[in-house]
């Protein structure tokens, strides 16, 4: 890929996880800040741009989600290639999805960018009975040097916080070579979070 112009730092973050762990709902939640509420939505695309101010410098990240394409196993390396951050989502109410999440983490550790920042996202905590503690998961995250977040796409708890905190944890000097061309063309969502202020713009393409 040839670089047309350099922009402010553009960083790629991928969201991975098993079927129906709520990946798309997380993205929807952070992009609209609402979850399945009575409003017509015309979402057809699966990425958002996210801008977080770190030390007074805007840090642009693009979040990629491949919800629905989980079965295209041979494509997944391409999604995480070039990413500087990965959020591996699992569903706390389904034990099995944690196993899949572990597999993801292992694959990422072995084959992805060694500097990749990996976060484990325990989603659907609203379904967890009486604040059961995610001890096993926390231990696993500790052992593997993962960030860990607890979210509920349904109630919105921890979602925006996760994305903001995660982007603050990303190294600032990476990703330039990955995103370059046509970046400022139409965008589906453009969320800007400047120290808490939030704007949402929506334009329709495709």
């Amino acid at each position: 890929m040839t670089s047309k112009f350099l922009t402010e730092v553009q960083q790629k973050v991928v969201v991975l996880g098993d079927f129906s762990v709520g990946k798309s709902s997380l993205i929807l939640r952070v992009s609209k800040n609402e979850f399945l509420e009575e409003q017509e939505s015309t979402i057809g695309a699966a990425f958002i741009n996210f801008s977080v101010n770190v030390d007074n410098k805007p840090n642009q990240i693009q979040i990629w989600d491949t919800a629905g394409q989980e079965k295209f196993r041979s494509l997944t390396p391409i999604y995480y290639r070039g990413a500087i951050g990965a959020i591996v989502v699992y569903d706390v109410s389904r034990e099995y999805s944690f196993q899949t999440a572990k597999e993801w983490v292992e694959e990422l550790k072995e084959k992805a960018n060694p500097k990749l920042i990996i976060a484990l996202c325990a989603n659907k905590i609203d379904l967890l009975e009486e604040k059961k503690k995610l001890l096993k998961e926390k231990e696993y995250a500790d052992e593997n040097g993962l960030l860990i977040y607890e979210t509920s796409a349904k109630t919105g708890k921890g979602v925006t916080e996760m994305f903001v905190d995660f982007s603050k944890n990303l190294p600032k000097d990476q990703g330039r070579e990955i995103f370059n061309d046509d970046f400022f063309e139409e965008e589906f969502f453009n969320i800007e979070l400047h120290n808490g202020e939030k704007k949402t713009e929506k334009t329709i393409c495709c």
Partner: peptide, 10 residues
């Protein structure tokens, strides 16, 4: 993917 977002977003 489009269908997933339509389904989960509405």
């Amino acid at each position: 993917t489009d269908l997933t977002f339509i389904e989960d977003g509405n």
